[in-house]
Write a protein that binds this DNA or RNA. Sequence first.
DNA 1: GAGTTTGAAACT
DNA 2: CAGTTTCAAACTC
Length: 271
Amino acid sequence: MRMATKINKDFRKGCKCKKSKCVKLYCDCFAGEFYCGEDCSCTECFNRVEYEDTVEVAREKIKVRDPLAFDPKIHPVVQSTRSHNEGGNQVMPIVGKHRKGCTCKNSMCFQLYCECYKANVGCSVGCRCEGCKNGFGIKGEYNVYNAPQTMRAINEKPNDCENTKLELTRLEFSPPESGYLQSSTPLTSHGNDTSRTESYFNPSPISAISGVIGTSTREFDIGPLNQQSYTYVDQSMDNQLTPGEINEMLDWNPNETLIYTTVNNTTQYIK
DNA sequence: GAGTTTGAAACT
DNA sequence: CAGTTTCAAACTC
Ligand SMILES: [Zn+2]
Ligand SMILES: [Zn+2]
Ligand SMILES: [Zn+2]
Ligand SMILES: [Zn+2]
Ligand SMILES: [Zn+2]
Ligand SMILES: [Zn+2]
């Protein structure tokens, strides 16, 4: 099964390293396991194919110190799900968490100095930032960007929709404090096109007022064992209200239980 | 472009 | 681990 390919728009702009010789993690090219290219204006660069042995030694040395050094820094957070076929489930990571978290002291996490902000993700429990003002999610604040990792998707038929093609995907998770949140999105059938754009509903109360916050375009593939896989072509966040602003508008208290369903594009609060 | 600020990476 | 230094990018002017 092929893994999803991330397309980073700012990908590979070229480094300007002077002292690291581009064989330390200071160099973004090296850190991303890329050789330096034409766009780089580095000095005494060893991060080139002709020095591949040197590069390999340098990589291994760093891996001894930290085996995860070259792993992705941003881990996806499952925040939306939709059924695609009988019993099938596709989950889409839109947002993520920084693996280590940041340690910002003076930039308040709203400048590109902050690795979380730079990666378009909110600060999470792993961050040790001070005075966090990360617009994607403030550390400790309960919002979709700080979504807990314990999430599961449950597909079921709504009570009075037995004879329809409607199916509900219920996303459940336990908020950090207490409470219980449910979100439902109606099943939609899909055609034979291999590339398409889908909209996803946020599992938090954000969907109650703004609906779509993220879109993705992806290409489907049928791999060995008839497994469905896909490659991301593009992802974007449309609604740029911060989670904090949205939660404030909703007067949403994470300690309260909120249950609602969305059927035929109508949101109904159960209580 | 030069100089400053910043926080991750590297080092002790 | 913690404290310090090094480093390249982000930022400012
Ligand atoms: Zn470099
Ligand atoms: Zn480079
Ligand atoms: Zn280089
Ligand atoms: Zn930060
Ligand atoms: Zn952070
Ligand atoms: Zn922060």
